[in-house]
Amino acid sequence: MKMLAPQEIVDVLKEAAGDAFKEARCTEWAEGVKGNKSRQVWIRLDRKALRPALKRLIEIHFPHLGVISCTDLGEEVELLYHLFVYYGVPHSEIMVTLAVSLPKTDLSIPTITDLIPGALVSEREKQEMMGIRVENIPDGRRMFLPDDFPEGVYPWRKDATGIPSDMVKELWTTGRENLKPPEGAGATEEEKKE
């Protein structure tokens, strides 16, 4: 197996993504005495290039999907597909993260379960936790949230559709007054501004 360098992977995926390619960066991080480096590739794309780029990556080496991470950036939600290629050969694994930004007005993304069936758990989780709509998902049920969890509440959101304060149980209200946190503690920066 001929192994591509991180920059070569970027070039190949850039070609596959075409005009939907936004930016890419390669990072390295060394630990230990010998200074062996772990290598990461971060590629930001438009939604329409996700599947072509992934297909191209599968041609290089069938990637292991770690997880799909998700960030609420205010107006947008960013999905990050953490993929790993070249595992099995000591110290040569490369992490390829494909990041896709979605506007909150249209949170839909095509499924990748036909390419990597193991993505199902992660896609189901993104649907319930962030309110993403995964198109053509083979099994759209909830994963971790209970069935009686209210519709339209998405725990990872940082806007009005996030967890409302009346759903949060404060431990100190069970009679341990001394554990009451100071005012404003335990709120995110956005919540503090409100």
Partner: peptide, 18 residues
Amino acid sequence: VRKDVRVDHPYAAYADLE
């Protein structure tokens, strides 16, 4: 499937070990 983070991904002291 030969996949082990300790082998594939050099980190901590595993980066020095074979």
